[in-house]
């Protein structure tokens, strides 16, 4: 479904990504972890073309992201993305946040879009909130709306860029629960996160990145029990001891 091959990216002299490669099969859940500044977010943003890269290839559902002829908006409409800071549109109601792109990008009728939005809001447990504005919701609620907004496009895969990093601790679980359900429903997911509990529960594979490199890329069991590299061991000991 998602194929990342030897992707390198430079910001001027600084190399942010060094020949990163991995595959995410249909229905697979892959977690990317690593210290901050290791290139995780940059890599995931390359997948839907929000960041460009100078070398390598990324294919999503058989379409090349780097190909100049690719209709990037169309490709993006088929890949959902959830951001660290939610990025709901503050001037639109919860309902309008979820219907906007359905109507403007997919050409759905208002009625269809509202139906879909209501159904998804029910799924994330926020059906009552639809007339409100984002600022009236808690961070956890906003992030659940953001997930619903992405799902409304019927994506073939979902990208999560540190979806719980900006949340207060007591709100992290309500978002993770939605993500776990989504994973168990068979959604293809690429998730940048520090939530190792989530990784242990639903991930098929874990990728560990450091200094712009994919250092480890292995099934979760072997990653958590027998990390191969010192760097991964150090990282795990730091975040798992608490």
């Amino acid at each position: 479904m998602i194929s990342i091959r030897n992707v390198s990216k430079w910001y001027g002299e600084f190399q942010a990504l060094k020949k990163c490669s991995t595959e995410v099969d249909k229905g697979e859940v892959v977690v990317i972890c690593g210290p901050s500044g290791s290139g995780k977010s940059t890599l995931i943003k390359c997948v839907n073309g929000l960041e460009s890269f100078q070398e390598g290839e990324i294919w999503v559902d058989g379409i090349s992201v780097a190909d100049r002829k690719t209709d990037l908006p169309k490709l993006r409409s088929r890949v959902g993305m959830v951001f660290q800071h939610f990025e709901l549109f503050p001037h639109l109601s919860i309902l309008d946040n979820i219907t906007l792109a359905q109507c403007r990008v997919l050409g759905r009728s208002k009625k269809q879009a509202v139906e879909k939005a209501v159904q998804l809001l029910e799924m994330v447990g926020l059906a009552e909130q639809q007339p409100k504005f984002p600022a009236q919701l808690s961070g956890g609620q906003q992030q659940r709306v953001a997930i619903a907004r992405a799902l409304a496009m019927d994506p073939v895969a979902m990208l999560f860029d540190e979806p719980t990093s900006a949340l207060d601790p007591e709100m992290i679980n309500e978002v993770l629960d939605v993500m776990v359900n989504l994973a168990q429903s068979g959604m293809t997911m690429l998730v940048v996160t520090h939530e190792m509990g989530f990784a242990k529960r639903v991930a098929d594979r874990v990728i560990f990145m450091d200094w712009g490199e994919v250092v480890e890329d292995r099934p979760k069991q072997t990653f958590f029990e027998h990390p191969e590299t010192d760097r991964a061991r150090q990282f795990l000991s730091k975040i798992l001891t608490h």
Binding site: N48, L50, F83, E87, L88, A101, V105
Partner: peptide
């Protein structure tokens, strides 16, 4: 905000 719009396919 710009990225969120783009990510939705606009």
């Amino acid at each position: 905000q710009f990225n969120a719009g783009l990510a939705l396919g606009m």
